[in-house]
């Protein structure tokens, strides 16, 4: 499999439909490297963003994203199409992030370094601007808001953070989140309600968010 001749087709959106997705999966299962490269290119942004927000560490997120796609490649044959490929990949991301956090906890990894790493990465991204003209004050304000949001997210429990990100950032429905996290839909809804309230409290009064 040559890495140098990947023909990426970014316009190949996920909204392309189930048939497009099914075709892509079948091509990947037949060992088509080009097809797998397209699959990775389609989902890598989503995987990296979710992993970085869940872990609070851009470097770790980059490494984890590779692991996620390796797992996708190895287990794609077991994908039955009961959920969308995107939901299936979300599930792998969340599971791998959870495992990595457990690994950190066992080794007492210092989390403060992780937060710092993400903030720096985020600021680089922010420095590129939002695509519209904005003044320096507006830019500073936006940067502060983004930093506050990430800081508040890190104060939530992993379960709350996962539900909140899948819902508010990735735009999944409660049904899709339930499929991605292997939880009953009712549990997702109650967890989402508590996670929203925790984020509100963390952002408004700066108090410690409830776990």
């Amino acid at each position: 499999m040559a890495a140098g001749d990947i023909a990426l087709r970014p316009a190949e959106a996920l909204a392309g439909g189930a048939s497009l997705e099914r075709g892509l999966v079948e091509e990947c299962c037949r060992g088509d490297a080009q097809a797998f490269a397209r699959l990775v290119a389609l989902h890598e942004g989503m995987v990296f963003n979710l992993a970085a927000r869940l872990l609070g560490d851009a470097e770790e997120a980059r490494d984890l994203a590779q692991e996620v796609f390796l797992q996708v490649y190895r287990t794609l044959g077991r994908f039955e199409g009961r959920s969308t490929l995107k939901t299936w990949i979300y599930r792998i991301v969340v599971n791998q992030c959870r495992n990595r956090r457990r690994w950190w906890r066992r080794r007492r990894k210092d989390r403060s370094r992780s937060l710092e790493t993400l903030t720096r990465s985020e600021e680089e991204r922010l420095a590129e601007g939002s695509g519209r003209m904005e003044g320096p004050d507006e830019r500073v304000e936006r940067r502060e808001r983004a930093r506050a949001v990430q800081s508040a997210l890190q104060r939530l429990s992993f379960g709350h953070r996962a539900v909140l990100l899948l819902r508010e950032v990735e735009g999944l429905s409660c049904e899709e989140i339930a499929a991605a996290l292997a939880l009953p839909e009712g549990t997702v809804k109650s967890r989402l309600s508590r996670a929203r309230e925790s984020l509100r409290r963390a952002l408004t009064d700066g108090k410690e968010a409830a776990p």
């Binding site: 499999m1 040559a2 890495a3 990947i6 990426l8 490297a33 797998f36 490269a37 990775v40 290119a41 890598e44 942004g45 995987v47 990296f48 963003n49 970085a52 927000r53 851009a58 997120a61 980059r62 994203a65 590779q66 796609f69 390796l70 490649y73 993400l118 990465s121 985020e122 991204r125 922010l126 939002s130 808001r145 983004a146 506050a148 949001v149 990430q150 997210l153 909140l164 508010e168 950032v169 984020l199 952002l203």
Partner: peptide, 20 residues
């Protein structure tokens, strides 16, 4: 604020590394 937070993008494409 959470929804508007910028999406974080990897500095380099992940696909190439995974295929490597």
């Amino acid at each position: 604020a959470l929804a508007e937070a910028p999406r974080l993008e990897p500095r380099e494409p992940i696909a190439a590394r995974v295929l490597d």
